[in-house]
């Protein structure tokens, strides 16, 4: 009778531990999260021109010494920059060269956080498969080989900033008047279309932008 009770109980206790379903990962990452913020004191209708890099995106990463992503090495920068330009143009701003004294500067960068960490696991005798060396490390003893689990995560955010170059302070400081954070760009199903969609959404949810804001 004792076995009759214990077997299903132990099985169900294990079932309790497994009752933590999570969402479908593909559905989670099929679009980027888009967060925008702006300086409520800024008058976005007062700006007329902007400058933006043509083929490079900045990169801040803890896994590489590169500081830019260039079109010659990646297909990522051009469609991203083109989408930003097309939205700014649609808002009535005019693109000019950097040396033509633009009112706004556009920063586009990816911040990448890559982490690897390891954990030494000392299995107990509650049923880890394998690594069982009964008797080898001493008579009548159970020994479970410790092993190392390696975990890694690699995350990144695409950031677009609009910098007010028109109203520089006397000591030549500038202010970010709008930014958009879009993530995660390292866990996407299709990076470029998702990034382009995210940029479009960033402008859609910022109706105060433009020479004649909505």
């Amino acid at each position: 009778m004792r076995k009759f009770f214990f077997v299903p109980l132990l099985a169900l206790a294990a079932l309790f531990q497994a009752c933590q379903p999570e969402p479908d990962a593909k559905q989670l990452i099929d679009q980027l999260v888009v967060a925008t913020n702006y300086d409520q004191a800024a008058d976005f209708s007062a700006y007329a021109t902007y400058s933006i890099p043509t083929d490079t995106i900045g990169l801040i990463s803890n896994s590489t010494n590169d500081t830019i992503i260039v079109q010659s090495k990646s297909t990522f920068p051009r469609p991203v920059l083109n989408e930003i330009k097309s939205n700014l143009n649609a808002l009535g701003y005019t693109q000019v060269a950097r040396n033509q004294n633009p009112d706004l500067g556009i920063n586009v960068l990816v911040v990448n956080d890559f982490n690897v960490f390891q954990q030494v696991v000392y299995p107990n005798n509650w049923g880890y498969p394998g690594n069982y060396y009964s008797g080898y490390y001493g008579y009548n003893s159970w020994y479970y080989y410790p092993y190392i689990n390696t975990y890694a995560y690699n995350t990144g955010v695409l950031i677009v900033e609009i910098v007010d170059l028109k109203n520089r302070t006397p000591d030549n400081k500038v202010k970010v008047v709008w930014d958009a954070y879009m993530g995660d760009v390292y866990s996407t199903i299709d990076l470029i279309p998702q990034s382009v969609d995210a940029i479009r959404q960033a402008f859609v949810q910022s109706p105060y932008l433009g020479k004649t804001p909505l």
Partner: peptide
């Protein structure tokens, strides 16, 4: 007892004072 409730929320834009966030999301209760 143990139960897991969940619901998918289609993409929506949530406004805050000086910004907005757009995403779809899942709410879960364990």
């Amino acid at each position: 007892s143990s139960s897991a409730y969940d619901q998918y929320k289609p993409t929506e834009t949530m406004q805050s004072g000086s910004g907005a966030v757009t995403t779809d999301y899942f709410n879960y209760i364990y």
